[in-house]
Design a protein around this nucleic acid. Sequence first.
DNA 1: AGCATATTTGAAATCGATTTCACTATTACT
DNA 2: AGTAATAGTGAAATCGATTTCAAATATGCT
Lengths: 339, 339
Amino acid sequence: MDAKIIDVAAKAGVSPATVSRVLNQGSSVTAKTRNKVMKAIDELNYRPNAAAKNLRLQKSLSIGVIAQDINNAYFTEIIKGIENMAYARKYKVFICDAENQAEKERDYLSLLMDRTMDGVIMITPQLSDEEIYGVVDKGYHIAVIGRNVNHPKIPCIYTDNVKFSRHVVEHLVEFGHRDIVFLSGYPEAVDSYERLEGYLKALKDNHIPFRPELVENGDFNETGGYEAIERLFAKKMTFTAVFAANDEMALGVYRACEERGIAIPEQLAVVGVDNNRISKYLTPRLSTVNQPKYTMGAIIVEKLIDQMNENQFEDKRVFTVDSELLVRASSNYHIQKKK
Amino acid sequence: MDAKIIDVAAKAGVSPATVSRVLNQGSSVTAKTRNKVMKAIDELNYRPNAAAKNLRLQKSLSIGVIAQDINNAYFTEIIKGIENMAYARKYKVFICDAENQAEKERDYLSLLMDRTMDGVIMITPQLSDEEIYGVVDKGYHIAVIGRNVNHPKIPCIYTDNVKFSRHVVEHLVEFGHRDIVFLSGYPEAVDSYERLEGYLKALKDNHIPFRPELVENGDFNETGGYEAIERLFAKKMTFTAVFAANDEMALGVYRACEERGIAIPEQLAVVGVDNNRISKYLTPRLSTVNQPKYTMGAIIVEKLIDQMNENQFEDKRVFTVDSELLVRASSNYHIQKKK
DNA sequence: AGCATATTTGAAATCGATTTCACTATTACT
DNA sequence: AGTAATAGTGAAATCGATTTCAAATATGCT
């Protein structure tokens, strides 16, 4: 159906090699032949077949992004950073939605291994470090966003989960809270346990005894957040603040509070993480932790591309970006005098 | 680097043809040889090279989705429907974010033409029908979501924009409104002008004179909605209700109202379209029009795949799905007695 | 057992591009 | 003008799979 390079060559009265030269390096071809070829290409509406090209070149100039869940704006904003920078570097970006399933992450990873894409960026806290290392050690290119991986060939960018979690808890303590719930994501995710770690450290620093019953696991989704907090309500736990591992779960807390007539922040302070765009549309506005999402995407895709092209290999590999606690109405309320 | 089929063949002591047979049809090969081959595949960690396979097979079993903007949950929910159904049919889905730029839509369309993907689903109101027809007439497979295209080879699914727009306006009229703003997206988009059409018809039906100054164009984004309504406020227009062409733009209206201290719905009723998940987190909850997004995605991807495989070609091509006006707090307020 | 038939297998062609190598046509320079 | 250097071009090999066709082997039947 489509015209092939040999058709173009025939029409222009040259060899396929010449057509290829016109299309690619651009040198070593007379203006006259170039014009003939261009004309033929135009008339036949010729596009080089991607499969043939990729096969011959052993690369596809494309990058896969495996995102945890594209319904969550946290991921889509990172992706925009990736997209735009990749575009500038002539790479195509294919977005894969893992829908929170480790199995799908693995599935998409196989697109790397069959060489559909030259490299992959993972924004997924679920697969273990070891599993990722295994793939990289076979010679494939992976970069990671949102966690620190300790492998010389994996560029990564992240914010210090422990650090900002401490900030969140300290902020809550300052506002008089001592009984602070931590709503985790699924526990095997880095984002879960590192944020928990920060929570624990802050409690310790402030000499607040840790109450394990105040830690509940969710799934990083609204529903999981709702169910987790409901479990606590059902057990008649006493607490005055909730630190949710991300904004989506905080959303679930809002819903539960609304149903139960609990006032935020007067009766319950809520803080999330991600500065998901949804957070500022809530009433009251949700306090959260901002990360430079777009930038994180843009930086890491550059590093991945550089690495794939074997430039700058000795260069920096681990990047940390600062996060910022945005204290908004959902936690901006002193429940008692500071001691 | 990667093992090739010839390596597997050598290791198993058979020919590449046999390896291929083991991997594909599964028939015509002895249990004994099959085992030898499987063992070799396993040991070498062999994956067929996608480019070689695609080239030979002249297909890639992959579908591209060109979405207007992945930061908008309307699109990501449709995409989930596409993804899951495609997965069940053994197709890979590549999501492309057009970022509201017609230029990018065209760019991604070229991935179709270089055969990177077998077919494309467009969820983008921007490119003209003619432009899409042009591509299809060259023999490529395209399906469209969210608009009715009149081409025998293009499956499409949509809700009747004119119809639900009339409902929205009628609802507002019932609640006493006569000066109703229509916030359009960019005017060349189908979603814009069809929704405008419904708005106009409803006005006419209700004998309300059309005030052209109450129609403003946005860009389907929060910012565009904000700027559009601000232009009207600046001109000191009088109106009591806003019908925004989508929820994102309604978001902008909320922001403007908040800044100006205008109470929704008492001083201004607001209705959006899409039932974007964000809409129910707003205060007051946003009235909007719901479409079965997930289902739309799932249905159309099936049709596209069927068509690509040349089954069921005479089958139904145009699908309409019902939409539903969700009257929530943002418009649930009578501003005057019904006459 | 002997022949006809069915089943397994391999050699070679093929998909559509790029690139090397060799050859020809230019251009440059003495 | 004649030779050396350079630029432009084409033939053929190559990337790694699948598939056709024919050969080899196994099976079935009298």
